[in-house]
């Protein structure tokens, strides 16, 4: 009933769907591939993992951001509520990077004490309001930031 070419096409399209779903089930959401680790997990990293690049996410500790001009960069601390790690970053941080907000840093955990990063992403929360409301001290209901780190 089918010509050979059509049959191959059907198999390809079925494989496309099955492969995509399989990738979701096994590749991305498996236990060994998480999008980021938390500061507590970074502190507990086994020595062999410190050679690899890792992403670490946390809240930028208020008052911890210090900038340098030569070379341009900054140091700050990331926390998940239980552990805090110092981060050294080279470059210009993204505009939404801010104390008291979330950030994801990509880099290496060295010597068991400092995280060296060359790429920062801002992790913003899900609340949106005009600046007048924010100044008036309005807080909209949102997920506790620390809970978004390790659900």
């Amino acid at each position: 009933m089918w010509t050979q070419g059509k049959k191959t096409g059907v198999i390809i399209s079925v494989l496309l769907v099955a492969g995509s779903l399989g990738y979701l089930a096994l590749g991305n959401f498996g236990q060994n591939l998480v999008y980021f680790v938390t500061p507590s997990e970074v502190r507990a990293l086994p020595p062999e993992r410190t050679q690899q690049k890792v992403r670490v996410a946390g809240m930028v500790v208020k008052g911890s951001v210090k900038t340098q001009s030569d070379p341009v960069g900054l140091t700050f601390e990331l926390t998940d509520g239980t552990a805090t790690i110092p981060v050294v970053f080279r470059g210009i941080p993204p505009d939404l990077f801010k104390e008291g907000q979330g950030a994801v840093a990509e880099g290496h955990w060295r010597d068991g004490q400092t995280f060296y990063s060359s790429m920062i992403m801002a992790k913003h929360s899900e609340d949106y309001m005009p600046i007048e409301l924010k100044r008036a001290g309005v807080e909209l209901p949102k997920k506790d930031f620390m809970k978004t780190l390790s659900p």
């Binding site: 951001v65 900038t67 341009v72 900054l74 210009i92 941080p93 505009d95 990077f97 801010k98 104390e99 600046i131 924010k134 100044r135």
Partner: peptide, 12 residues
Amino acid sequence: GSPPENLRELKT
């Protein structure tokens, strides 16, 4: 002026 919400060093 009013307290700046978004003032930080190294920010455009």
